[in-house]
Amino acid sequence: MDIVLYANSPTSDFLSDLANALFAGSGLATAYGLITVDSNGSDRDSTFTISTTKVAGKLLVYGSVTASTNYTLSQVKLLASNGKTYFVASPSSGGGSVSTGTKINIYFYITVTVSGSISYGSIGGSAYPVNIADYVYDVLMGVRSPSDLAFDGIFFDFRDVNNTPIGVTVTPSKTKSGNTINLSASAIPNANWSLRNIGVLKGQTVLWMYSLNQAVTGSAGSTVSISASINLGAL
Protein backbone atom coordinates (compact mmCIF):
# COMPACT_ATOMS: atom_id res chain seq x y z
CA MET A 1 0.00 0.00 0.00
CA ASP A 2 1.32 3.38 -0.91
CA ILE A 3 0.41 6.64 0.68
CA VAL A 4 1.31 9.64 -1.42
CA LEU A 5 1.53 12.97 0.31
CA TYR A 6 1.53 15.98 -1.95
CA ALA A 7 2.73 18.58 0.41
CA ASN A 8 3.91 22.12 0.34
CA SER A 9 5.08 22.18 3.83
CA PRO A 10 8.38 23.90 4.45
CA THR A 11 8.16 25.23 7.96
CA SER A 12 8.92 28.79 8.95
CA ASP A 13 12.03 27.41 10.62
CA PHE A 14 13.26 25.98 7.35
CA LEU A 15 12.51 29.14 5.41
CA SER A 16 14.19 31.26 8.06
CA ASP A 17 17.29 29.06 8.06
CA LEU A 18 17.42 29.11 4.26
CA ALA A 19 17.08 32.89 4.22
CA ASN A 20 19.93 33.17 6.70
CA ALA A 21 22.05 30.87 4.56
CA LEU A 22 21.41 32.96 1.44
CA PHE A 23 22.04 36.19 3.28
CA ALA A 24 24.82 35.33 5.71
CA GLY A 25 25.92 31.76 4.96
CA SER A 26 24.78 30.22 8.20
CA GLY A 27 21.79 28.56 9.79
CA LEU A 28 20.73 25.82 7.40
CA ALA A 29 21.24 22.37 8.94
CA THR A 30 21.30 18.84 7.60
CA ALA A 31 18.37 16.44 7.36
CA TYR A 32 18.45 14.30 10.45
CA GLY A 33 15.33 12.22 10.99
CA LEU A 34 11.77 11.35 10.08
CA ILE A 35 8.77 11.11 12.37
CA THR A 36 5.29 9.82 11.69
CA VAL A 37 2.36 11.64 13.24
CA ASP A 38 -1.09 10.25 13.94
CA SER A 39 -4.43 11.86 13.27
CA ASN A 40 -4.41 13.46 16.72
CA GLY A 41 -1.19 15.27 15.93
CA SER A 42 0.89 13.08 18.21
CA ASP A 43 4.34 11.96 17.18
CA ARG A 44 4.37 8.19 16.83
CA ASP A 45 7.37 6.51 15.27
CA SER A 46 10.70 7.96 14.30
CA THR A 47 13.97 7.05 12.64
CA PHE A 48 17.27 8.82 12.70
CA THR A 49 18.80 6.35 10.31
CA ILE A 50 18.11 8.03 7.03
CA SER A 51 19.71 8.17 3.62
CA THR A 52 19.83 11.12 1.31
CA THR A 53 20.39 11.11 -2.41
CA LYS A 54 19.59 13.25 -5.41
CA VAL A 55 17.02 11.82 -7.79
CA ALA A 56 15.90 13.57 -10.96
CA GLY A 57 16.49 17.07 -9.69
CA LYS A 58 15.05 16.36 -6.27
CA LEU A 59 16.50 15.44 -2.92
CA LEU A 60 15.25 12.10 -1.63
CA VAL A 61 15.35 11.56 2.09
CA TYR A 62 14.57 7.92 2.85
CA GLY A 63 13.93 6.17 6.11
CA SER A 64 11.71 3.46 7.49
CA VAL A 65 9.97 2.98 10.79
CA THR A 66 7.92 0.20 12.28
CA ALA A 67 4.55 1.12 13.63
CA SER A 68 4.53 0.73 17.39
CA THR A 69 0.74 0.76 17.60
CA ASN A 70 -2.35 1.03 15.48
CA TYR A 71 -2.96 4.54 14.22
CA THR A 72 -3.86 6.67 11.25
CA LEU A 73 -0.75 8.09 9.67
CA SER A 74 -1.63 11.69 8.98
CA GLN A 75 1.67 13.54 8.78
CA VAL A 76 5.36 12.98 8.29
CA LYS A 77 7.91 15.37 9.72
CA LEU A 78 11.43 15.87 8.51
CA LEU A 79 13.76 16.90 11.28
CA ALA A 80 17.02 18.78 10.97
CA SER A 81 20.24 18.28 12.88
CA ASN A 82 19.72 21.57 14.69
CA GLY A 83 16.58 20.16 16.32
CA LYS A 84 14.16 22.08 14.15
CA THR A 85 11.38 20.63 12.04
CA TYR A 86 11.98 21.55 8.43
CA PHE A 87 8.96 19.97 6.74
CA VAL A 88 5.57 18.73 7.89
CA ALA A 89 3.85 16.85 5.10
CA SER A 90 0.14 16.07 5.27
CA PRO A 91 -1.91 14.04 2.82
CA SER A 92 -4.27 16.00 0.66
CA SER A 93 -7.09 13.87 1.98
CA GLY A 94 -7.46 11.29 4.68
CA GLY A 95 -4.45 9.30 5.69
CA GLY A 96 -3.32 5.76 5.96
CA SER A 97 -4.15 3.24 8.61
CA VAL A 98 -1.20 1.36 9.99
CA SER A 99 -1.19 -1.44 12.50
CA THR A 100 1.37 -2.58 14.99
CA GLY A 101 4.36 -4.02 13.22
CA THR A 102 3.67 -2.36 9.90
CA LYS A 103 6.85 -1.31 8.21
CA ILE A 104 6.48 2.22 6.93
CA ASN A 105 8.91 3.18 4.17
CA ILE A 106 9.12 6.93 3.86
CA TYR A 107 10.29 8.49 0.62
CA PHE A 108 10.51 12.21 1.23
CA TYR A 109 11.23 14.09 -1.98
CA ILE A 110 12.22 17.72 -1.65
CA THR A 111 12.32 20.15 -4.54
CA VAL A 112 13.90 23.56 -4.43
CA THR A 113 13.34 25.92 -7.28
CA VAL A 114 13.54 29.56 -8.21
CA SER A 115 10.83 31.46 -9.97
CA GLY A 116 10.18 35.08 -10.63
CA SER A 117 10.65 37.85 -13.08
CA ILE A 118 12.83 40.67 -14.26
CA SER A 119 11.75 43.75 -16.06
CA TYR A 120 13.23 46.68 -17.87
CA GLY A 121 10.57 49.08 -18.96
CA SER A 122 8.28 47.10 -21.16
CA ILE A 123 10.74 44.27 -21.58
CA GLY A 124 10.04 41.34 -19.35
CA GLY A 125 11.90 38.27 -18.41
CA SER A 126 12.11 35.52 -15.89
CA ALA A 127 14.23 34.07 -13.13
CA TYR A 128 15.28 30.42 -13.11
CA PRO A 129 17.50 28.21 -11.00
CA VAL A 130 20.95 27.11 -12.05
CA ASN A 131 22.89 25.57 -9.15
CA ILE A 132 20.86 26.81 -6.21
CA ALA A 133 18.84 23.60 -5.82
CA ASP A 134 21.90 21.36 -5.86
CA TYR A 135 23.58 23.58 -3.31
CA VAL A 136 20.59 23.50 -0.96
CA TYR A 137 20.37 19.71 -1.36
CA ASP A 138 24.08 19.41 -0.61
CA VAL A 139 23.65 21.37 2.59
CA LEU A 140 20.72 19.18 3.64
CA MET A 141 22.83 16.13 2.84
CA GLY A 142 25.68 17.48 4.91
CA VAL A 143 28.20 17.55 2.09
CA ARG A 144 28.32 21.31 1.70
CA SER A 145 28.46 24.21 4.07
CA PRO A 146 25.59 26.71 4.18
CA SER A 147 28.22 29.38 3.55
CA ASP A 148 28.17 28.23 -0.09
CA LEU A 149 24.66 29.63 -0.38
CA ALA A 150 25.56 33.16 0.56
CA PHE A 151 25.56 34.83 -2.84
CA ASP A 152 28.31 37.39 -3.18
CA GLY A 153 28.37 38.45 -6.82
CA ILE A 154 26.18 39.75 -9.60
CA PHE A 155 27.31 38.98 -13.10
CA PHE A 156 26.17 41.27 -15.91
CA ASP A 157 26.62 39.30 -19.09
CA PHE A 158 27.37 42.28 -21.33
CA ARG A 159 28.20 41.74 -24.98
CA ASP A 160 29.87 44.26 -27.26
CA VAL A 161 28.65 45.08 -30.75
CA ASN A 162 30.29 41.90 -32.05
CA ASN A 163 28.54 39.81 -29.38
CA THR A 164 31.87 39.31 -27.70
CA PRO A 165 31.47 38.80 -23.96
CA ILE A 166 32.51 41.79 -21.91
CA GLY A 167 30.81 40.67 -18.73
CA VAL A 168 31.24 42.44 -15.43
CA THR A 169 30.94 40.95 -11.94
CA VAL A 170 30.21 43.23 -9.03
CA THR A 171 29.53 42.73 -5.35
CA PRO A 172 25.91 43.33 -4.48
CA SER A 173 24.60 45.12 -1.48
CA LYS A 174 22.16 43.01 0.51
CA THR A 175 19.57 43.65 3.13
CA LYS A 176 17.32 41.23 4.92
CA SER A 177 13.94 41.63 6.54
CA GLY A 178 12.33 38.48 7.83
CA ASN A 179 12.62 35.93 5.07
CA THR A 180 12.91 38.58 2.38
CA ILE A 181 16.32 39.53 1.04
CA ASN A 182 16.89 42.53 -1.15
CA LEU A 183 19.88 43.00 -3.36
CA SER A 184 21.13 45.74 -5.57
CA ALA A 185 24.12 46.05 -7.82
CA SER A 186 25.43 48.34 -10.56
CA ALA A 187 27.97 47.99 -13.33
CA ILE A 188 29.43 50.38 -15.88
CA PRO A 189 30.46 48.69 -19.12
CA ASN A 190 33.38 50.29 -20.97
CA ALA A 191 32.04 49.66 -24.45
CA ASN A 192 28.73 49.87 -26.20
CA TRP A 193 26.82 46.93 -24.94
CA SER A 194 23.82 44.68 -25.00
CA LEU A 195 22.51 42.70 -22.07
CA ARG A 196 20.09 39.82 -21.64
CA ASN A 197 21.33 37.70 -18.76
CA ILE A 198 22.28 38.51 -15.19
CA GLY A 199 23.55 35.86 -12.83
CA VAL A 200 23.58 35.69 -9.06
CA LEU A 201 26.86 34.13 -8.01
CA LYS A 202 28.55 32.42 -5.15
CA GLY A 203 32.19 32.72 -6.10
CA GLN A 204 32.32 31.55 -9.70
CA THR A 205 29.14 29.50 -9.43
CA VAL A 206 25.86 30.78 -10.77
CA LEU A 207 23.10 30.11 -8.25
CA TRP A 208 20.27 31.51 -10.32
CA MET A 209 19.76 33.70 -13.34
CA TYR A 210 17.58 36.50 -14.58
CA SER A 211 16.99 36.47 -18.29
CA LEU A 212 15.31 39.22 -20.27
CA ASN A 213 13.08 38.28 -23.16
CA GLN A 214 15.10 40.53 -25.41
CA ALA A 215 18.42 42.30 -25.15
CA VAL A 216 18.74 45.77 -23.72
CA THR A 217 21.37 47.96 -25.34
CA GLY A 218 23.33 51.00 -24.19
CA SER A 219 26.48 52.99 -24.65
CA ALA A 220 29.84 52.78 -22.93
CA GLY A 221 29.97 54.48 -19.56
CA SER A 222 26.32 54.13 -18.76
CA THR A 223 25.38 52.76 -15.39
CA VAL A 224 23.35 49.56 -15.41
CA SER A 225 21.62 48.73 -12.16
CA ILE A 226 19.58 45.83 -10.89
CA SER A 227 17.51 45.61 -7.78
CA ALA A 228 15.75 42.46 -6.70
CA SER A 229 13.77 41.05 -3.84
CA ILE A 230 14.01 37.41 -2.87
CA ASN A 231 11.19 35.72 -1.03
CA LEU A 232 11.00 32.20 0.29
CA GLY A 233 7.91 30.05 0.42
CA ALA A 234 6.35 26.73 -0.36
CA LEU A 235 6.75 25.07 -3.69
Binding site: M1, D2, I3, V4, L5, Y6, A7, N8, S9, P10, F14, L15, L18, L22, T36, K58, L73, V76, L78, F87, A89, G96, V98, T102, K103, I104, N105, I106, Y107, F108, Y109, I110, T111, V112, T113, V114, S115, G116, S117, I118, S119, A127, P129, I132, V136, I198, W208, Y210, I226, S227, A228, S229, I230, N231, L232, G233, A234, L235
Partner: peptide
Protein backbone atom coordinates in the same frame (compact mmCIF):
# COMPACT_ATOMS: atom_id res chain seq x y z
CA UNK B 1 3.51 0.48 3.27
CA UNK B 2 5.35 3.11 1.32
CA UNK B 3 4.82 6.75 2.07
CA UNK B 4 5.84 8.97 -0.81
CA UNK B 5 6.07 12.67 -0.14
CA UNK B 6 6.60 15.39 -2.68
CA UNK B 7 7.55 18.57 -0.97
CA UNK B 8 9.74 21.54 -1.50
CA UNK B 9 10.48 25.18 -1.27
CA UNK B 10 10.40 27.95 -3.81
CA UNK B 11 12.62 30.97 -3.99
CA UNK B 12 10.64 33.62 -5.77
CA UNK B 13 12.43 36.70 -6.85
CA UNK B 14 11.51 39.73 -8.85
CA UNK B 15 14.09 42.09 -10.26
Amino acid sequence: INVIINDGANISTSA
